[in-house]
Design a protein around this nucleic acid. Structure first.
Lengths: 125, 125
DNA sequence: ACAATAACTAACAAAATTGTTAGTCTTTAA
DNA sequence: TTAAAGACTAACAATTTTGTTAGTTATTGT
């Protein structure tokens, strides 16, 4: 549980009102979150499919990350009809779908500079 | 100090090799980091200028975040010649500059869905 | 001589995130 | 009847991140 009186919480709120950038980042922060969003966008839209792709994640942790993504309306849970026990499908909202290309550009950026090469700097002054 | 034998660390490394997306996110994770990068790109390239823009950040924390950004080669420190005591200017590398438009699209994404409106979902199946 | 400025650092404490253990519930297969 | 699959949850412990306190260094202004 967040402590609303903590400096940590107050600073987070401060950044949220400085720029939406910070709330956006807060939504994709979290050990597994953006990888999960990406996996779902690739069609791995079931709990056990995500587990197969990310064998190191525990059930508890996966469930928690999914719930947080749901809280931020990046995805919704959908019951698959006529299944027993009822199957759950994870569906990206339009908000979640719009995030995917941004994650892709982050990925490209990461790849481009991965080896520590291609770095340079020159002051603008 | 990170514990190299912890599950937390091992999982982070696992995600790094799954996709560069995860290393990219790890670099911009951190309470103040992307806001600092954005501020520097706007010309607030001195320690005290960033402090003015983000009055809630403590000196210790700002120094730490700057050092981490430097470790990831997103910015470099540059001594300003003929200043006593020697002034330090923070300069984005090309890697850091390439990050800025991505942060801007994250910001736009955040703004678009900020009020919780415009959310919808429909399964692909 | 004393305070102030700029840009830090080390050691520590508080808080948050991540991972673990042990459960739940329902139905089908062996 | 026992086990397994699928999709979870609560309570707790480990680890990491964030914030705090108290310093440093060198120089200029009063």
């Amino acid at each position: 549980m967040r402590k609303k009186q903590s400096t940590n919480y107050v600073n987070e709120q401060f950044l949220f009102q400085v720029c939406e950038l910070n709330s956006a980042i807060a939504m994709i922060n979290g050990r597994w979150k953006s990888q999960i969003v990406y996996s779902i966008s690739q069609g791995n839209n079931r709990f056990h499919l995500i587990q197969q792709e990310l064998p190191n994640i525990s059930e508890t942790v996966l469930a928690r990350q999914l719930k947080e993504l749901e809280t931020h309306a990046i995805l919704i849970k959908k019951e698959i009809p006529n299944t027993v026990p009822v199957g759950i499908e994870y569906v990206l909202t339009n908000k979640g779908l719009d995030l995917v290309p941004i994650l892709e550009s982050l990925c490209d950026w990461g790849k481009l500079y991965a080896d520590g090469k291609r770095i340079s700097a020159h002051s603008i002054s």
